[in-house]
Protein backbone atom coordinates (compact mmCIF):
# COMPACT_ATOMS: atom_id res chain seq x y z
CA UNK A 1 0.00 0.00 0.00
CA UNK A 2 1.00 3.61 -0.51
CA UNK A 3 1.56 6.12 2.25
CA UNK A 4 -1.49 6.53 4.43
CA UNK A 5 -3.95 9.40 4.08
CA UNK A 6 -4.43 9.62 7.81
CA UNK A 7 -1.97 8.46 10.46
CA UNK A 8 -3.03 8.20 14.08
CA UNK A 9 -0.27 7.76 16.64
CA UNK A 10 -0.51 7.28 20.40
CA UNK A 11 -3.94 8.86 20.62
CA UNK A 12 -5.14 9.22 24.23
CA UNK A 13 -8.25 10.87 25.62
CA UNK A 14 -8.94 11.06 29.32
CA UNK A 15 -12.17 12.48 30.67
CA UNK A 16 -12.38 13.77 34.24
CA UNK A 17 -14.79 11.70 36.32
CA UNK A 18 -14.49 13.25 39.72
CA UNK A 19 -13.36 16.71 40.62
CA UNK A 20 -11.99 17.97 43.91
CA UNK A 21 -13.04 21.13 45.73
CA UNK A 22 -11.05 23.37 43.39
CA UNK A 23 -12.45 21.89 40.20
CA UNK A 24 -9.26 19.94 39.55
CA UNK A 25 -9.96 16.44 38.28
CA UNK A 26 -8.83 13.63 40.54
CA UNK A 27 -10.13 10.57 38.74
CA UNK A 28 -9.94 10.02 35.00
CA UNK A 29 -11.48 7.60 32.62
CA UNK A 30 -9.30 6.78 29.65
CA UNK A 31 -11.87 6.46 26.90
CA UNK A 32 -9.11 6.08 24.34
CA UNK A 33 -5.84 4.87 25.74
CA UNK A 34 -3.06 5.00 23.20
CA UNK A 35 -4.22 3.82 19.80
CA UNK A 36 -2.31 3.72 16.53
CA UNK A 37 -3.68 3.10 13.07
CA UNK A 38 -3.44 4.26 9.49
CA UNK A 39 -6.23 5.06 7.12
CA UNK A 40 -5.36 4.54 3.47
CA UNK A 41 -6.84 6.44 0.56
CA UNK A 42 -9.92 4.75 -0.86
CA UNK A 43 -10.36 2.11 1.81
CA UNK A 44 -13.16 1.61 4.29
CA UNK A 45 -11.81 0.94 7.73
CA UNK A 46 -14.48 -0.65 9.89
CA UNK A 47 -14.26 -0.04 13.63
CA UNK A 48 -16.06 -2.48 15.90
CA UNK A 49 -16.29 -2.94 19.64
CA UNK A 50 -18.75 -2.86 22.48
CA UNK A 51 -20.14 0.22 24.18
CA UNK A 52 -17.47 2.01 26.15
CA UNK A 53 -14.63 0.69 23.99
CA UNK A 54 -13.86 4.19 22.74
CA UNK A 55 -15.07 4.00 19.12
CA UNK A 56 -17.14 7.17 19.30
CA UNK A 57 -14.47 9.03 21.24
CA UNK A 58 -12.02 8.09 18.52
CA UNK A 59 -14.38 9.54 15.92
CA UNK A 60 -14.73 12.79 17.84
CA UNK A 61 -10.97 13.00 18.32
CA UNK A 62 -10.43 12.55 14.60
CA UNK A 63 -12.90 15.34 13.92
CA UNK A 64 -11.13 17.55 16.49
CA UNK A 65 -14.45 18.01 18.25
CA UNK A 66 -12.59 17.18 21.45
CA UNK A 67 -8.94 17.79 22.21
CA UNK A 68 -6.76 14.70 22.60
CA UNK A 69 -4.88 14.33 25.90
CA UNK A 70 -1.92 13.00 23.95
CA UNK A 71 -1.05 11.76 20.49
CA UNK A 72 -0.91 13.10 16.98
CA UNK A 73 -3.04 12.91 13.87
CA UNK A 74 -1.33 13.43 10.54
CA UNK A 75 -3.27 14.05 7.35
CA UNK A 76 -1.41 13.60 4.08
CA UNK A 77 1.86 13.81 5.97
CA UNK A 78 0.98 17.07 7.74
CA UNK A 79 0.29 17.21 11.46
CA UNK A 80 -3.23 18.43 12.22
CA UNK A 81 -3.59 21.41 14.53
CA UNK A 82 -0.15 22.85 13.78
CA UNK A 83 0.96 25.50 11.30
CA UNK A 84 1.36 22.67 8.77
CA UNK A 85 -2.37 22.02 8.76
CA UNK A 86 -4.72 24.26 10.77
CA UNK A 87 -7.82 22.58 12.17
CA UNK A 88 -10.21 24.60 10.00
CA UNK A 89 -8.35 23.52 6.88
CA UNK A 90 -8.36 19.89 8.07
CA UNK A 91 -12.09 19.98 8.73
CA UNK A 92 -12.82 20.53 5.09
CA UNK A 93 -11.13 17.22 4.36
CA UNK A 94 -12.81 15.12 7.03
CA UNK A 95 -16.53 15.13 7.69
CA UNK A 96 -18.75 13.08 9.92
CA UNK A 97 -22.21 11.51 9.90
CA UNK A 98 -23.71 11.01 13.34
CA UNK A 99 -25.92 8.20 14.61
CA UNK A 100 -28.90 10.30 15.62
CA UNK A 101 -30.22 11.66 12.36
CA UNK A 102 -32.70 13.90 14.14
CA UNK A 103 -30.36 15.51 16.66
CA UNK A 104 -27.69 16.14 14.06
CA UNK A 105 -29.86 18.46 11.98
CA UNK A 106 -30.88 21.92 13.14
CA UNK A 107 -34.68 21.79 13.49
CA UNK A 108 -35.03 25.47 12.58
CA UNK A 109 -33.26 25.19 9.25
CA UNK A 110 -34.59 23.77 6.02
CA UNK A 111 -32.81 20.85 4.44
CA UNK A 112 -31.26 23.15 1.87
CA UNK A 113 -29.99 25.58 4.51
CA UNK A 114 -28.51 22.74 6.56
CA UNK A 115 -26.53 21.39 3.62
CA UNK A 116 -25.48 24.81 2.33
CA UNK A 117 -24.17 26.00 5.71
CA UNK A 118 -20.78 24.24 5.57
CA UNK A 119 -19.67 25.58 2.18
CA UNK A 120 -20.56 29.17 3.16
CA UNK A 121 -18.29 28.84 6.18
CA UNK A 122 -15.44 28.16 3.78
CA UNK A 123 -16.13 31.13 1.57
CA UNK A 124 -18.46 29.67 -1.04
CA UNK A 125 -21.16 32.15 -2.02
CA UNK A 126 -24.66 31.51 -0.71
CA UNK A 127 -25.95 31.09 -4.23
CA UNK A 128 -23.39 28.50 -5.16
CA UNK A 129 -23.77 26.73 -1.81
CA UNK A 130 -27.51 26.44 -2.40
CA UNK A 131 -26.93 25.07 -5.89
CA UNK A 132 -24.49 22.56 -4.42
CA UNK A 133 -27.08 21.58 -1.79
CA UNK A 134 -29.70 20.89 -4.44
CA UNK A 135 -27.44 18.78 -6.59
CA UNK A 136 -26.25 16.80 -3.55
CA UNK A 137 -29.83 16.14 -2.52
CA UNK A 138 -30.40 14.68 -5.94
CA UNK A 139 -27.21 12.66 -5.53
CA UNK A 140 -28.33 11.09 -2.22
CA UNK A 141 -31.64 10.11 -3.75
CA UNK A 142 -33.91 12.88 -2.50
CA UNK A 143 -35.80 14.93 -5.05
CA UNK A 144 -34.66 18.51 -4.39
CA UNK A 145 -38.01 19.85 -5.48
CA UNK A 146 -39.75 17.91 -2.75
CA UNK A 147 -37.17 18.02 0.01
CA UNK A 148 -35.00 21.16 -0.19
CA UNK A 149 -37.58 23.38 1.48
CA UNK A 150 -38.60 20.93 4.18
CA UNK A 151 -37.78 20.88 7.88
CA UNK A 152 -36.22 17.83 9.52
CA UNK A 153 -39.24 16.82 11.56
CA UNK A 154 -41.16 16.30 8.34
CA UNK A 155 -38.75 13.61 7.11
CA UNK A 156 -38.42 9.92 7.95
CA UNK A 157 -35.30 8.55 9.65
CA UNK A 158 -33.83 7.27 6.41
CA UNK A 159 -34.47 10.54 4.58
CA UNK A 160 -32.89 12.51 7.42
CA UNK A 161 -29.79 10.35 7.32
CA UNK A 162 -29.52 10.96 3.57
CA UNK A 163 -29.64 14.70 4.31
CA UNK A 164 -26.87 14.23 6.88
CA UNK A 165 -24.76 12.45 4.31
CA UNK A 166 -25.37 15.24 1.81
CA UNK A 167 -24.45 17.78 4.46
CA UNK A 168 -21.19 15.97 5.16
CA UNK A 169 -20.38 15.79 1.45
CA UNK A 170 -21.12 19.48 0.87
CA UNK A 171 -17.59 20.40 1.88
CA UNK A 172 -16.20 17.92 -0.66
CA UNK A 173 -14.21 16.02 1.97
CA UNK A 174 -11.83 13.16 1.28
CA UNK A 175 -12.64 11.22 4.43
CA UNK A 176 -16.06 10.49 5.85
CA UNK A 177 -16.34 9.32 9.46
CA UNK A 178 -19.56 7.34 9.83
CA UNK A 179 -20.31 6.97 13.54
CA UNK A 180 -23.04 4.31 13.79
CA UNK A 181 -24.59 6.10 10.83
CA UNK A 182 -27.05 3.32 10.01
CA UNK A 183 -27.60 1.86 13.49
CA UNK A 184 -30.76 3.77 14.26
CA UNK A 185 -32.40 2.94 10.94
CA UNK A 186 -34.87 0.18 10.29
CA UNK A 187 -33.37 -2.83 8.55
CA UNK A 188 -35.29 -2.25 5.34
CA UNK A 189 -33.98 1.31 5.17
CA UNK A 190 -30.49 0.45 6.39
CA UNK A 191 -29.76 -1.53 3.22
CA UNK A 192 -30.71 1.45 1.04
CA UNK A 193 -28.38 3.76 2.94
CA UNK A 194 -25.52 1.22 2.86
CA UNK A 195 -25.90 0.94 -0.90
CA UNK A 196 -25.95 4.71 -1.18
CA UNK A 197 -22.74 4.96 0.86
CA UNK A 198 -21.07 2.40 -1.40
CA UNK A 199 -22.14 4.36 -4.51
CA UNK A 200 -20.98 7.69 -3.14
CA UNK A 201 -17.63 6.25 -2.16
CA UNK A 202 -17.04 5.15 -5.70
CA UNK A 203 -18.41 8.31 -7.30
CA UNK A 204 -16.43 10.75 -5.17
CA UNK A 205 -13.37 8.62 -4.40
CA UNK A 206 -14.03 8.81 -0.67
CA UNK A 207 -12.29 7.09 2.22
CA UNK A 208 -14.52 5.84 5.03
CA UNK A 209 -14.01 5.24 8.71
CA UNK A 210 -17.06 3.10 9.38
CA UNK A 211 -17.88 2.75 13.06
CA UNK A 212 -20.56 0.24 14.01
CA UNK A 213 -21.48 -2.31 16.60
CA UNK A 214 -23.03 -4.47 13.88
CA UNK A 215 -20.43 -7.00 12.78
CA UNK A 216 -22.39 -8.10 9.71
CA UNK A 217 -22.70 -4.58 8.40
CA UNK A 218 -19.02 -3.88 9.04
CA UNK A 219 -18.05 -7.01 7.15
CA UNK A 220 -20.17 -5.94 4.21
CA UNK A 221 -18.78 -2.40 4.12
CA UNK A 222 -15.12 -2.62 5.07
CA UNK A 223 -11.82 -3.39 3.40
CA UNK A 224 -10.08 -3.59 6.77
CA UNK A 225 -11.45 -3.90 10.28
CA UNK A 226 -10.21 -2.52 13.56
CA UNK A 227 -11.42 -4.17 16.78
CA UNK A 228 -11.35 -2.02 19.91
CA UNK A 229 -11.60 -3.13 23.51
CA UNK A 230 -11.56 -0.73 26.46
CA UNK A 231 -9.84 2.11 24.67
CA UNK A 232 -7.19 0.02 22.93
CA UNK A 233 -6.77 -1.68 19.59
CA UNK A 234 -7.16 -5.43 20.01
CA UNK A 235 -6.87 -6.43 16.38
CA UNK A 236 -6.58 -4.77 12.98
CA UNK A 237 -6.52 -6.61 9.70
CA UNK A 238 -8.05 -7.21 6.27
CA UNK A 239 -11.76 -7.92 6.64
CA UNK A 240 -11.94 -11.50 5.44
CA UNK A 241 -8.69 -12.50 7.13
CA UNK A 242 -10.06 -11.14 10.39
CA UNK A 243 -13.53 -12.62 10.06
CA UNK A 244 -12.34 -16.04 9.01
CA UNK A 245 -9.10 -16.20 10.99
CA UNK A 246 -9.42 -13.92 13.97
CA UNK A 247 -6.28 -13.77 16.12
CA UNK A 248 -7.40 -12.00 19.27
CA UNK A 249 -9.58 -14.08 21.62
CA UNK A 250 -11.86 -11.06 21.99
CA UNK A 251 -12.47 -10.85 18.24
CA UNK A 252 -13.19 -14.57 18.26
CA UNK A 253 -15.69 -14.11 21.07
CA UNK A 254 -17.30 -11.15 19.33
CA UNK A 255 -17.70 -13.14 16.13
CA UNK A 256 -18.96 -16.10 18.16
CA UNK A 257 -21.71 -13.86 19.53
CA UNK A 258 -23.21 -13.48 16.08
CA UNK A 259 -26.51 -15.29 15.98
CA UNK A 260 -26.79 -18.15 13.54
CA UNK A 261 -30.10 -17.45 11.77
CA UNK A 262 -30.53 -21.21 11.74
CA UNK A 263 -33.25 -22.62 14.00
CA UNK A 264 -31.55 -26.02 13.95
CA UNK A 265 -28.16 -24.73 15.05
CA UNK A 266 -28.87 -22.28 17.79
CA UNK A 267 -26.10 -20.92 19.95
CA UNK A 268 -25.48 -23.45 22.70
CA UNK A 269 -23.25 -21.51 25.07
CA UNK A 270 -22.14 -17.89 25.21
CA UNK A 271 -18.58 -17.45 23.87
CA UNK A 272 -17.64 -15.28 26.84
CA UNK A 273 -19.40 -14.45 30.07
CA UNK A 274 -19.80 -11.24 32.02
CA UNK A 275 -19.95 -7.62 30.96
CA UNK A 276 -17.09 -5.44 29.72
CA UNK A 277 -15.27 -4.02 32.77
CA UNK A 278 -15.69 -0.43 33.86
CA UNK A 279 -13.27 1.80 31.89
CA UNK A 280 -12.72 3.99 34.98
CA UNK A 281 -10.73 1.21 36.53
CA UNK A 282 -9.42 -0.95 33.67
CA UNK A 283 -7.63 -4.20 34.47
CA UNK A 284 -3.82 -4.08 34.34
CA UNK A 285 -1.88 -5.80 31.57
CA UNK A 286 -4.02 -7.00 28.71
CA UNK A 287 -7.40 -5.31 29.12
CA UNK A 288 -9.19 -8.47 28.09
CA UNK A 289 -7.55 -10.92 30.49
CA UNK A 290 -10.44 -10.80 32.99
CA UNK A 291 -12.78 -12.39 30.43
CA UNK A 292 -10.26 -14.37 28.40
CA UNK A 293 -10.20 -18.17 28.46
CA UNK A 294 -6.47 -18.27 27.67
CA UNK A 295 -5.34 -15.72 30.27
CA UNK A 296 -2.08 -16.50 32.07
CA UNK A 297 0.24 -14.67 34.43
CA UNK A 298 1.88 -12.67 31.67
CA UNK A 299 -1.49 -11.33 30.51
CA UNK A 300 -2.20 -9.49 33.73
CA UNK A 301 1.43 -8.44 34.15
CA UNK A 302 2.25 -6.81 30.84
CA UNK A 303 0.25 -5.01 28.20
CA UNK A 304 0.71 -6.78 24.86
CA UNK A 305 2.07 -4.77 21.92
CA UNK A 306 0.26 -4.52 18.60
CA UNK A 307 2.16 -6.87 16.26
CA UNK A 308 1.68 -8.12 12.72
CA UNK A 309 2.47 -11.64 11.58
CA UNK A 310 5.69 -12.24 9.65
CA UNK A 311 3.97 -14.21 6.92
CA UNK A 312 1.05 -11.82 6.40
CA UNK A 313 0.39 -10.87 2.81
CA UNK A 314 -1.35 -7.78 4.12
CA UNK A 315 -0.44 -6.83 7.68
CA UNK A 316 -2.80 -8.28 10.26
CA UNK A 317 -2.08 -6.71 13.62
CA UNK A 318 -3.01 -8.17 16.97
CA UNK A 319 -2.32 -7.18 20.57
CA UNK A 320 -2.17 -10.55 22.30
CA UNK A 321 0.62 -12.34 24.13
CA UNK A 322 -0.30 -15.55 22.33
CA UNK A 323 0.89 -13.90 19.13
CA UNK A 324 3.94 -12.16 20.59
CA UNK A 325 7.16 -14.19 20.32
CA UNK A 326 9.06 -14.55 23.59
CA UNK A 327 6.06 -13.26 25.56
CA UNK A 328 6.25 -16.38 27.70
CA UNK A 329 2.64 -17.38 27.01
CA UNK A 330 2.30 -21.16 26.94
CA UNK A 331 -0.06 -21.20 23.96
CA UNK A 332 2.14 -19.20 21.64
CA UNK A 333 0.82 -19.25 18.06
CA UNK A 334 3.18 -19.87 15.17
CA UNK A 335 3.90 -17.16 12.62
CA UNK A 336 4.17 -14.33 15.06
CA UNK A 337 6.95 -11.88 14.34
CA UNK A 338 8.41 -8.97 16.29
CA UNK A 339 7.31 -6.17 14.00
CA UNK A 340 5.82 -3.29 15.91
CA UNK A 341 3.10 -1.10 14.53
Amino acid sequence: MTSPLLEVRGLVKQFPVRKNLFGRATTFVSAVDGIDFDLFEGETLGVVGESGCGKSTTARLLMHLIEPTAGTIRFGGRTVGTAELPVKEFRRQVQMVFQDSYASLNPRLTVEESIAFGPTVHGVSQREANARALSLLERVGLDPRRFAGRFTHELSGGQRQRVNIARALALQPRILVLDEAVSALDKSVEAQVLNLLADLKEAFGLTYLFISHDLEVVRFMSTRVLVMYLGRVAELGPTEALYTGSRHPYTTALLGSLLSMDPDHRTAAPPITGDPPNPIDPPPGCRFHTRCAYAEGVCSARMPALLAGAADAAPHWVACHMHAPRSGHSKLKAGAAPETA
Binding site: L65, K88, F98, A103, S104, N106, F117, G118, V121
Partner: peptide, 13 residues
Amino acid sequence: TRDFVEAARASGA
Protein backbone atom coordinates in the same frame (compact mmCIF):
# COMPACT_ATOMS: atom_id res chain seq x y z
CA THR B 1 -24.38 19.62 23.21
CA ARG B 2 -26.72 18.60 20.40
CA ASP B 3 -25.16 16.86 17.41
CA PHE B 4 -26.09 19.57 14.93
CA VAL B 5 -23.92 22.06 16.80
CA GLU B 6 -21.11 19.50 16.76
CA ALA B 7 -21.67 19.07 13.04
CA ALA B 8 -21.45 22.84 12.56
CA ARG B 9 -18.19 22.87 14.50
CA ALA B 10 -16.96 19.98 12.40
CA SER B 11 -17.63 22.02 9.27
CA GLY B 12 -15.20 24.60 10.58
CA ALA B 13 -17.59 27.36 11.64
